[in-house]
Each structure stands twice: as C-alpha cells, then as structure tokens.
Design a protein around this nucleic acid. Structure first.
Length: 461
RNA sequence: UCCUUCUUAGCUCAGCUGGUUAGAGCACAUGACUGUUAAUCAUGGGGUCCCUGGUUCGAGUCCAGGAGAGGGAGCCA
C-alpha cells in the first residue's frame, strides 16, 4: 500500500481515511491493553501516534518494535483521545522492516548532549533537533535559489578544483594524483607538478568569487552556491574546513547596491524560514534558545545600521576601557569590538570602507588613498556573516595593488583581462551558508548545522 | 595554533584531605498497571575510572607525558 507522510496524516482533513505510515519508532508506551507507538518519518518534527491493541498481534513482534525500529503501520486516522495531538492512527496492520536492538542502539528516548550526537553523526538525523535543523537547512538552500532566480540572477557553477592559489582567502587543500611517498621531482628537489593530473599544482577552491566576476561580466547578475574548502587550523564553533558559500556578483552595482542586496537577501531568507519552518524553529526556540524567534523577528523589523569603519572606530574609542585589545584607526576589529557594535546598535551592523591594508587586493580603492570599498555584515550572536566589496575595475590600479601585495600576476592573467576588455563597476559578497543556518536555528556550534562536519582532525562519516 | 576546563556504567553526572567491595538518575531486562505524552511503580543485570609512565604501604583521586572533547582567542564565511 502507498504510504502517506506523517505531515499529512497529522492534519484534521485526514480523519476518517485509511492510511499507511512508514517511519522510525521514537517511543513506545503502554500496558497490556493498549500500546502507543510514536512514529516519525522526517516529513515534519511531530510524530504520528499509532494506537495498537496488543491482543491482536504476536507478542514477539511487538517486543521487537522498540525505539529506533523501522515499521509500516496501516489503519484508520481518527481524532485523538489524548491531548498531545489532533489525530492518531488506530492500527489494523503492522509490519516490521528493521529492528534496532535496544541494548546497542545509541539513541535513547531521553536527553543527549550535542557533543555525544556529533560522535554518532550517522544516526543523529533521527533526532528531533537534527531533523529540525536539516529541514531548515533544506528550506534555506531552496530559498536562496528562489530569491536570486526571482530577481533575475543566474546560478553560475564555479570550479571546485582551482588552478590558482592566489585567491588569498586562506590555506588550501592540495588536489593531486601524484604518489605521495615518491613524487616526481625537479632538478632542484621541488615536486614536479607538470607530471600531475592537471599538469600544474591544483587545490580545492577557497572562493568562487574570481570566477563569479567573470560570469557577472557577461550575464550581469550571477550567484554561486557551492562547497568551499579552507585548510586553516581553526578550532572554533564558527569554522568548518568544508562549508557552503553563496557569492552573488553583480555588474554595475556599487557598494550601496551591494549593501541593499545583502540586507534584502538576509531578510528574505529569515522571513522565508519563519513562514516555512515555523514548527521546527519553534521547537529549537523552546529547547535551546528562548530568544530565537524574537531575534529573527527583530532583524526583520529594523533597518541594518550602516556606518564606515572610521565611524565605528569613533564609537569604540570612548569605550576603550571595556576592551582587552587596543582600538585605533588602522587595526582590524577584534571580535569583542564587533560584538560591542552589534549590541550597541541593537541589531545587524554593516561596516564599510576599511583600511586597504587589512583587506583583499581586488577591492575598489577610495579616493582618499587609505580605504577600500569593503563591506562586512555583522550579526548578533554569530559575528561576521557576510564579507564583500565593490571590486576595483581599473586595470592599472588593480595591477599596482597586486604587485604591492605580492599577488603573482601570471596566475591571474584571466582575471586581469576582465579589466582590460569591457570593464565596469561591479560588486559582490560571500555569505557563509552554515553561519546563516546558525542564526536561523539558534544552534551555537557550526558542527551541528551541517550533516557531516569536516574540521581539523575529523573527517569521520 | 594559543589560553582554559573537562574525560568515571549505553547516556548525563556525583565520588570530600589518597584508604576496605566505585555510586545515583535515565536507558536496558523482568514484572505490575484499562488511553499513554520524556508514562508511572517494583525488582534486576551492567565498570579497561581516556592511555602510558611515575610517587606511595595504598591512586578514580597526586605528578609528568600523550590522546580526545567543550569554551574563549586568532584566521575567516
């Protein structure tokens, strides 16, 4: 018999229907007269309560249907006599697909720490928490594509294996088919990558931005959304070695347009989450973060505070006594400074026009000779969620800056040609997908918003 | 990578100043209970005290080294 999602069976319109449900047992309760089997199939955070008359079934079969078992139940959907749910199933047929030995199945009915669940990442999607997070993650991925598609952007697939090591966004993972124990060598003892698969040194991408700019110089408005890799030895709740990044790039946009796009996108995504994932967000709000829903609504209700780096420094200096690290014009902001600004203004802050020496080579230089048209979006709780800029479109200025910063120009000849042939103002940014999910779910560790996290010393599963 | 805290039953933890046979709750098993909501009650089984070495009559407890995890910082998204 065709089965119906729990999500549908829980609706009052299902009452009176014969149906089959297939899923995993969350709990079983009861006595010798009646048994209650709560079944979850992942379609929604709630379970379907299946009511079983034990006298109608083999005692051994019922015994094997415990927490974690996979079953199929058929019966009529009725209004629930209990108070915890609107509907339930009066079971007439029960089939066991696979049992889960209670002695060894690691997921119990009761509390687990998130740290323990990370050790059993192959099973944790079966918990309420990870079901909720993974559903939210799906809806956010879909909403990102929808947002950009609706605005006329094209989804550009930039390469995951990159031949340039000049993107400047961090340490890279080498991609090679050479024999690691005995690689071919040049006369001077260095590894001869001419014999490698691609005939040159290659790595996993740290950013699709440079290729994204190539797309924007033809299609006008593009975005990338794909995996990104950083081999930094970062051990924090906000960093992953493998994460997903969204990078829009828009021809003819200047910094102001870039800020508008970032704010519009973030608000669209948060509103989408509240509209389409409310059950899951409500669950996370109640279990982990009582301020979650209020914080999401607050971000939607207010414009992001926009100010220059220089103005931010002026706000920070009178409060210098509150900080561990010094504040003066020219130094990069520490996390404590960013946190101060966000709580001082009571919401997201967009900082622009940073000193050029703390930002990347491709950012557009301001006329003051000191700052560049950079933009960071700082969010409550998680800090920097977006980093972006208007790009330097002047070939001469870009080349000079690359030389100053020792960026090898021969590696990026193709990037430079966009400035030689039909250059134009353009801007873009990068949004860390998992950081967005952190914000929307209220989870506090980035390892808990991706199914199988990759971090230093950890690539299990 | 740096600072800091932690590692005891399947899970979450207690274990005092080093002292006899290492405890609790939950989970699990068995039984009871006429509709439960993390059901309840009774009984029971369950331990490489992270690893290696040291100090001591004696180490879960003290010391050294190592591994793993959490929090904070840096790097960034």
């Amino acid at each position: 018999m065709k089965h119906t999602p729990v999500k549908v069976l829980l609706q009052a319109t299902s009452i009176g229907n014969m149906a089959t449900v297939k899923g995993w047992v969350r709990t079983k309760r009861g006595n010798k007269n009646v048994a209650f089997i709560a079944i979850n199939d992942g379609s929604i955070i709630h379970n379907l309560q299946c009511v079983v008359d034990p006298s109608q079934y083999d005692e051994e079969l019922l015994k094997r249907i415990g927490t974690g078992a996979c079953v199929s139940a058929t019966g009529i959907i009725v209004a629930s006599q209990g108070s915890g749910q609107a509907t339930e199933m009066q079971v007439t047929a029960l089939e066991l697909y696979g049992e889960a030995d209670a002695e060894t199945y690691p997921l119990q009915k009761k509390g687990h720490t998130l740290e323990f669940l990370r050790e059993i990442a192959h099973l944790r999607p079966r918990t309420n928490t990870f079901g909720a997070v993974l559903r939210v993650r799906h809806h956010m991925a879909f909403a990102i594509n929808k947002f950009f598609n609706d605005q006329g952007f094209f989804y550009l697939h930039t390469p995951i294996i990159t031949g340039s090591d000049a993107e400047g966004a961090g340490e890279m993972f080498r991609v090679s088919t050479l024999n690691a124990k005995n690689p071919p060598l040049n006369d001077d003892g260095t590894i001869n990558y001419k014999e490698d698969f691609f005939g040159k040194e290659t790595n996993l991408t740290v950013s699709g931005q440079l290729e994204g700019e190539l797309g924007a110089m033809a299609l006008g408005k593009i975005y990338t959304f794909g995996p990104t890799f950083r081999a930094e030895n970062s051990n924090t709740p906000r960093h992953l070695a493998e994460f997903w990044m969204i990078e829009p790039e828009v021809a003819f946009n200047e910094l102001e347009d870039n800020m508008n796009l970032a704010e519009d996108m973030l608000k669209y995504l948060i509103a989408y989450a509240l509209e389409h994932c409310y059950d899951d967000i409500e669950f996370l709000n109640n279990l982990y973060d009582k301020e979650l829903i209020a914080r999401l609504q607050s971000v939607l209700a207010n414009p992001f505070k926009r100010m220059t780096y220089t103005e931010a420094i002026e706000v920070l200096i009178p409060n210098i006594g509150k900080f561990e690290f010094p504040v003066e014009w020219g130094t990069d902001l520490q996390k404590e400074h960013e946190n101060f600004l966000v709580s001082h203004f009571g919401g997201p802050v967009i900082l622009t026009d940073y000193p050029k020496h703390i930002k990347a080579f491709y950012m557009k230089q301001n006329d003051d000779g000191k700052t560049v048209r950079a933009m960071d979006v700082l969010f409550p709780w998680i800090g920097e969620i977006i980093g972006g800029s208007q790009r330097e479109e002047n070939h001469e200025k870009l080349l000079t800056r690359m030389n100053e910063m020792n960026i090898p120009e021969h590696d990026l000849w193709w990037y430079l040609e966009t400035r030689k042939f039909g250059t134009c103002p353009h801007a873009g940014f990068g949004l860390g997908f998992e950081r967005l999910i952190l914000f929307v779910t209220g989870m506090s560790n980035i390892r808990d918003v991706i199914p199988f996290p990759r971090t230093p010393k950890n690539a299990e599963f």
